[in-house]
Nucleic acid binder design. Structure first.
Lengths: 153, 153
DNA sequence: CTGAATGCAAATTGTTTGCATGTTC
DNA sequence: GAACATGCAAACAATTTGCATTCAG
């Protein structure tokens, strides 16, 4: 299960893949960079970007098609849809396949040859709901918030 | 139908809105800038960005939640989903509402409070299909391609 | 040994911001 | 005339690229 497409197995490539598969979040390139740097302090961000692209091209990981300006990557290749927290911007997997069968109709309607689709859900994650609740009920034992809302540009 | 939220009606604001409503494409800020500059050659790109944000905040236009790094704007406010051409990157409207009712279930499953969703389709637009066909059947009377695939970063 | 991959820095692209000036209400 | 908008340039953030060096096969 190594390289199907003449990809050399460099240490950095390997570790990027490992780290990405380790998490269930859907990290951006910079987040991957941060994770990987714990094991390879001298790796360059450019290498991370290049490898994420190449691994995705080779079908070993998945470059996600999500809203927002940062690209996100997924260690698994199976199609599944995502839910994004509108407060903290985290992205989680959605277990069930929620894709409407009706979709095919459009093909006719617009002359488009339909090749795929992508459903993304938005909401508030459990963590942020909890935080909001605490805030509402009085900031008594305020637990030091975990998430830093990454401003999407 | 002017300002509900203390927005001053400046010439640039007005023209941005007009131009945006004129088209059915879903232009990026820079595309809007180009359109508007035909009528207001001295307008600055920053003004376009600021106004698009403000008009969207005021609910007069819609900032689209689409994949890709460029933000896109829509002169209409009604929710509807989109189909994007994988070759030339144009975005068209999809007439029917294709949203699965099943969606609600997830709420329970992941602890998320569901607030919205967004379905995007991908395919090849009629124009690009035509181009591909010409190319395949021999580049005899090659009609000088119209679209420049904007590389999404 | 040789092409592919890395690190580093500089370049691009899309978008935002500070500030002095100009314009609506 | 005061608050808000504009234009311009500079600042940012995310990503890409050029190039000399290193490394996997």
């Amino acid at each position: 299960m190594t390289s199907s497409k003449g990809l050399k197995l460099t240490r950095q490539r390997q570790i990027i893949l490992e780290e990405l598969r380790k998490v269930r979040t859907h990290p951006t390139a910079i987040e991957v960079y941060t994770m990987v740097r714990r094991r390879l302090p001298r790796i360059s961000l450019a290498t991370v970007y290049r490898n994420l692209e190449e691994l995705a091209a080779a079908g070993l990981i998945q470059k996600l098609t999500l809203a927002g300006s940062r690209k996100r990557f997924d260690g698994t290749v199976e199609e599944h849809c995502h839910i994004r927290c509108l407060k903290c911007d985290r992205v989680d997997d959605v277990a069930q396949v929620l894709v409407p069968p009706i979709v095919e109709d459009v093909e006719t309607l617009h002359g488009y040859q339909l090749l795929g689709h992508h459903l993304e859900l938005f909401g508030i994650c459990p963590r942020c709901q909890e935080k909001a609740r605490e805030r509402r009920e009085g900031p008594s034992h305020s637990q030091a918030g975990r998430e830093a809302k990454q401003k999407e540009r």
